[in-house]
């Protein structure tokens, strides 16, 4: 099977177990399938299904198994981690046990999905770059849900599973640790996030701009540059004085996205463990002035 796969555009590939959804023409490729399931895929999907089931059961229990309330309250329903008093111990179901079970299976599901991507890449005879980059996102997930709570000594530091719970956690985490905007790792992470968007927009717009010159055939272009590539690169040399190549732009994209995830993860891990109050860190670093203390008239030194 693997030896038959040569190019995505190959007629052999596209005619194997194909069907087309014409309405997808404007947004994606119209070809659907073939889909590989496999052991890791099954494991990932099953564990994810268990996660969803546990979370939804927790929601239903909170609304007394009332379907109308379930729908109405869905945006604010949440399966919360155990209270701080439980530390890192197992908790009864209604007091965080649901969260512990759901998080356990969610973590397994994510890991199995990572293995699935990795194994499919190997089977496809391509490098496992997608899987490697995915680990950076998993690192951020693990930092928030596992590493930071364990290093602080309470699952309560982790977010609940729910739409509103994610926002509430982000807010509370920032409030507790001084002000997350002054966390230097958060600063780098946001730089990476915004930088990723900028780079993606620049790249997408550039390729679309030279579609009529075949530049969208990126693989061909990477192997043997044509007029589209040259003009696209000339555009950026005119604008910025330098340009990425058809290959290196993708390396840039990976790098800046990974920086965003890894820096974000480190920022979470170091909160409370190395620095309890990022505003005071910023004060010591000279980024912000110290706050005035009541009863005085001048800016005090940093508090701690």
């Amino acid at each position: 099977m693997a030896s038959e796969i040569t190019r995505v555009e190959s007629a052999d590939w596209r005619t194997t177990r194909r069907f087309y959804l014409k309405f997808l023409e404007g947004l994606a490729d119209t070809q659907i399938g073939p889909l590989y399931i496999g052991v890791w895929g099954i494991l990932a999907l099953v564990f994810f299904a268990v996660t969803v089931f546990v979370i939804l059961f927790g929601y239903l229990e909170q609304v007394g198994f009332n379907p109308i309330l379930f729908v109405r309250e869905f945006p604010v329903l949440s399966v919360e981690p155990p209270p701080p008093s439980y530390g890192l111990k197992l908790a009864p179901l209604a007091e965080g046990g649901y969260w512990q079970i759901a998080t356990f299976f969610l973590t397994l599901s994510i890991v199995f999905w990572l293995i699935r991507i990795w194994s499919r890449a190997i089977a496809n005879r391509i490098r496992p770059n997608v899987a490697i980059v995915f680990t950076s996102a998993i690192f951020l997930y693990a930092a928030i849900y596992i590493i930071h709570p364990i290093s602080m000594g309470a699952w309560n530091e982790a977010p609940g599973h729910g739409l509103r719970a994610q926002l509430v956690w982000a807010n509370a985490f920032s409030i507790k640790y001084g002000n997350f905007y002054y966390n230097p790792f958060h600063m780098v992470s946001i730089f990476g996030l915004l930088g990723s968007c900028l780079l993606l927009a620049m790249h997408g717009a550039t390729i679309l701009a030279v579609v009529r010159l075949n530049a969208h055939r990126e693989i061909d272009e990477a192997e043997s540059s044509t007029e589209g590539t040259h003009r696209a690169q000339l555009l950026w040399r005119w604008v910025m004085g330098f340009n990425a190549t058809a290959t290196s732009i993708h390396t840039w994209a990976i790098a800046i996205a990974v920086v965003s995830m890894v820096a974000g993860a480190l920022g979470v891990i170091f909160s409370g463990t190395l620095e309890p109050d990022w505003f005071q860190w910023a004060c010591r670093a000279g980024i912000v002035p110290g706050v005035i203390q009541p009863g005085t008239t001048s800016v005090a030194a940093c508090l701690r």
Partner: peptide, 19 residues
């Protein structure tokens, strides 16, 4: 008040309450 110091116990419950 919830802004953490080195002695602040683990957990976000107090912060949720505050918020």
């Amino acid at each position: 008040k919830v802004t953490a110091t080195k002695d602040t116990p683990a957990g976000l419950d107090a912060t949720y309450r505050n918020q």
